[in-house]
Design a protein around this nucleic acid. Sequence first.
DNA 1: GAATTCCTTTGACAATTATCAAAAAAACAC
DNA 2: GTGTTTTTTTGATAATTGTCAAAGGAATTC
Lengths: 197, 197
Amino acid sequence: MYLNHINNLVFKEFLDILNSISPLSPESKRVLQKHLSFRTLSKGDYLLNHGETCRHIYFVNKGFLRIFYYKNGKNITEWFAREKNFCFSITSYFNKTPSDLIIESIEDSEVIFLSRKGLEELRKCNLEVANLIIEFLSHSLIASQKRMESIQFETAKKRYQNLLKEQPEIIHQVSLHNIATFLGITQETLSRIRAQI
Amino acid sequence: MYLNHINNLVFKEFLDILNSISPLSPESKRVLQKHLSFRTLSKGDYLLNHGETCRHIYFVNKGFLRIFYYKNGKNITEWFAREKNFCFSITSYFNKTPSDLIIESIEDSEVIFLSRKGLEELRKCNLEVANLIIEFLSHSLIASQKRMESIQFETAKKRYQNLLKEQPEIIHQVSLHNIATFLGITQETLSRIRAQI
DNA sequence: GAATTCCTTTGACAATTATCAAAAAAACAC
DNA sequence: GTGTTTTTTTGATAATTGTCAAAGGAATTC
């Protein structure tokens, strides 16, 4: 269900969030708004499917998303996107290739779409938009780096404890299996870790 | 040994490389050049030390660098930067915090420094520079993502084989220990993997 | 509320990798 | 070359995690 140009208040709030990431003039907000769209999702809906090319950066206005993919027939969680956070398939978005990742709504959600085409056009001529993208990418890079270090150098137990500390609510939102694959371990191993704590 | 504004030809070539990443007018090149510096390093020299804040993006004009850190007293390789590639400490650079990472020259090297201060100034007022940074960050993000997936979902043997395929020359440039920690395994495990192949 | 389905835990065992120690090989210095 | 140091390999053992199978719980449906 696409509802373009309808929920103006939602867009206004979103543009304010963008503005807090990197300052935007009213004019920049106006041109950016042209490239926004809005979608509501029911629990279980897919925002991006395997094989589709990722043509947007997604902002979770409400709800909760899971980004996952299939590896040897098993579904592996790559990331969770909480309310007021962004997500997208990095590789598909930049390389314009079919996505291996699937983005699933695990609660009823509201998502704002930022179109790649729009952003690519705007960043070429609008300095504020270009700087907004720089802020966005540098934060994404730091997050990616952090996750990499966690996977490479912490034990499964430590990673689980960190997750509990940083996102305690996650336990009630997603299955143990999803948390386990997100941590890079099997469901059984996570179950045993929990038994120890 | 810093040699600013001396090796003009080297800078010209470097600016051409930047231009090939994202187009730069002669004027943009001119202003960018003001924020470049140059340094030669002997084998074993440190480009960035633990506790120092990373104030530059480095470009390996010649030679070979290793980025590593200490974890429980052991030195762990995070990345290798080959000739004509960039490197920097992501966290230290963006957060302006002391670096955990150490960047070491493992061959006699020539490195071009792109100053963070200069880039931060320029990107605010120069659209071409802002777009250059966007290209740079998006490629960094893709690389970080790729490495993360490799660590999380491939066996040590597979990772070693991929490394051999992608950078066969690396075997002759760095010790087995450094390759092992880069792959996220111990030296002994890597030695045993090699014996199998 | 009984049946079905899905999620989580537990058990037994195998595979992978780490750790500690020592030997072998290679590189380096004199 | 000889001796010294560093790097790599090998051995024995332990720890961690994965795999396969089954049981126990919880949630859902009819």
